[in-house]
Design a protein around this nucleic acid. Structure first.
Ligand SMILES: NC(=O)c1ccc[n+]([C@@H]2O[C@H](COP(=O)([O-])OP(=O)(O)OC[C@H]3O[C@@H](n4cnc5c(N)ncnc54)[C@H](O)[C@@H]3O)[C@@H](O)[C@H]2O)c1
Ligand SMILES: NC(=O)c1ccc[n+]([C@@H]2O[C@H](COP(=O)([O-])OP(=O)(O)OC[C@H]3O[C@@H](n4cnc5c(N)ncnc54)[C@H](O)[C@@H]3O)[C@@H](O)[C@H]2O)c1
Lengths: 248, 248
DNA sequence: CGCGATTTGTGCACGCCTTCACAAGCGCCT
DNA sequence: AGGCGCTTGTGAAGGCGTGCACAAATCGCG
């Protein structure tokens, strides 16, 4: 990405600390580390070893150390990582100290559940606006918020300086909603509608497709079935309390 | 890749067709290809070029060709891929021709939405049972199904030969639910509760954590903000209708 | 004050995945 | 029948990510 200028160390040289460009794989794991750290903090732990945190986050300890080393984190050799310090570091890197404003478009079955989800607020996000195109939904109160009409999206998004939008509308309207979000200044989109969105290159999109998740599991079921068919009988070895997560 | 044995094509030589072991990255993309193919089929297309299908699925055409070549797919040079044939191939590989039975545990906010989701049925899955530990929920009718008590999980799962379970319970109970599912013979789990599950090695787990998705987006917001701070002014180039999906 | 136990940070090698580039194959048109 | 354009399938190269293994660093204790 950004070629290195004047090989200085990434410390906070001046007012704005240099932003390290972490590997994508690393930043995808930071949230899991953060969750594990919060859990540890609640149990009163002051420090964690890489081994301990890795176990809590379900990863290899070497991987965890390398990940943390990327963000210049300061652990103490022989002791481990300071839990509170690491929480602050990761929250800063992820930009969670801003308590980011999020809007949700499409208040149907899924949208209702999302609008009432406490897990967003507790992990750094404020759902500040709900939108729907159906006049019957507009005006409805959900979790202290009033559903507004999609026509007001652009105005409200600007007023509340919303940078993240969630799409929970039917697949056919997802692209139009994405366009409206982009026009309203949103630069990050979380999309629950199946299908591919087309957006400007400065906008980030992440997709959650439950059917795809199930289909990947189905593949592994198929594979497991076709393996137990041929070799020695069905060896369902419980293999101790180990953890198995398929894919990434 | 697979060393060639007696140069025969990988067709169904005997009763059980050889099961190709595809790269994980490939199988994660097959469902997206499948969705795009179904869409193309509806519009009446008989064949697609790798370029066309790649665009519809949002990937590089070379990647798509390599993916399809892994499953020994038969395209026709100069023409493209037969849509109907490819659909059958992919559905077979993913094991979707079985119309797999799925059960859902935890009928709360999220569980309600999932139980009524039509996107499962249309993409190869039948939700055949709903479970909850709350006596007030047991007996409730959702989408033609009656919520049953978790105590009946093991019996029902065996009766219906359920291989895939979905967890939509609070984080604290997710591990216990996973243990119950495993005890009931479930070998694939889709988990919506934040946290790490510990399961035997013959059980596959996939996790969906919405807060993590938002946090990854938040990171990119943070990064974008810190970039526009230093270099030339804010260059929000719309860059044509290109597509941008961050992470995998 | 020195030593051993412990744990971090990382150099290195390996494997997976992506992407390019092109030869081989296929159909159509003349 | 032959040639031409189009598209697939794949060899090769490069990049990224993972995990091992170990040196460096720190703490506690005698
Ligand atoms: N329900 C689930 O569990 C589930 C699971 C996975 C994915 N999804 C996906 O999430 C999306 C929503 O699912 P759902 O079950 O909530 O559907 P739904 O039909 O219950 O809700 C869709 C809502 O979007 C609103 N809407 C439609 N067009 C709109 C527009 N242009 N602008 C704003 N709002 C608009 C509708 O008025 C409705 O309230 C779908 O794409 C679906 O495939 C749903
Ligand atoms: N609501 C959302 O939009 C959302 C989004 C992302 C993740 N999640 C996660 O999904 C899970 C469910 O969220 P929710 O909002 O539906 O919560 P909820 O409290 O509304 O529902 C939880 C349900 O699980 C049932 N339950 C509790 N313990 C159980 C057990 N041991 N066995 C069976 N059932 C049990 C409860 O009776 C309740 O009906 C949580 O882990 C949450 O973090 C929810």
């Amino acid at each position: 990405m950004s070629q290195q200028r004047h090989g200085s160390t990434p410390g906070a040289a001046d007012g704005v600390p240099a932003f390290p460009d972490l590997p994508e794989a690393t930043i995808a794991r930071l949230p899991e580390y953060l969750r594990a750290l919060h859990h540890l903090a609640e149990t009163g732990a002051e420090t964690v070893s890489s081994e301990g945190l890795a176990a809590a986050a379900g990863v290899n300890s070497a991987k965890l150390r390398k990940d943390l080393s990327h963000l210049g984190s300061y652990g103490t050799r022989g002791v481990g990582y300071d839990v509170a310090l690491l929480v602050d570091q990761i929250e800063y890197i992820l930009g969670l100290d801003k308590n980011r404003a999020v809007c949700l478009v499409g208040v149907g079955n899924l949208g209702h559940a999302l609008a009432g989800y406490a897990g967003f607020a507790s992990r750094g996000f404020r759902v500040v606006a709900l939108f729907d195109a159906d006049p019957k939904k507009v005006g409805e109160q959900i979790n202290g918020l009033t559903v507004q009409h999609t026509d007001d999206l652009e105005r409200v998004a600007a007023e509340e300086s919303i940078a993240i939008g969630v799409i929970a509308t039917p697949p056919g309207t997802a692209q139009a909603v994405a366009d409206a979000l982009v026009a309203a200044g949103v630069t990050s989109i979380l999309n629950f509608a199946p299908g591919v969105l087309s957006v400007p290159s400065n906008v980030d999109v992440r997709k959650v497709d439950l059917a795809i998740e199930l289909q990947i599991l189905s593949f592994h079921e198929h594979r497991k079935a076709s393996l137990t068919a041929l070799p020695g009988g069905r060896s369902a070895q419980p293999a101790s309390g180990d953890q198995e997560v398929v894919g990434s």
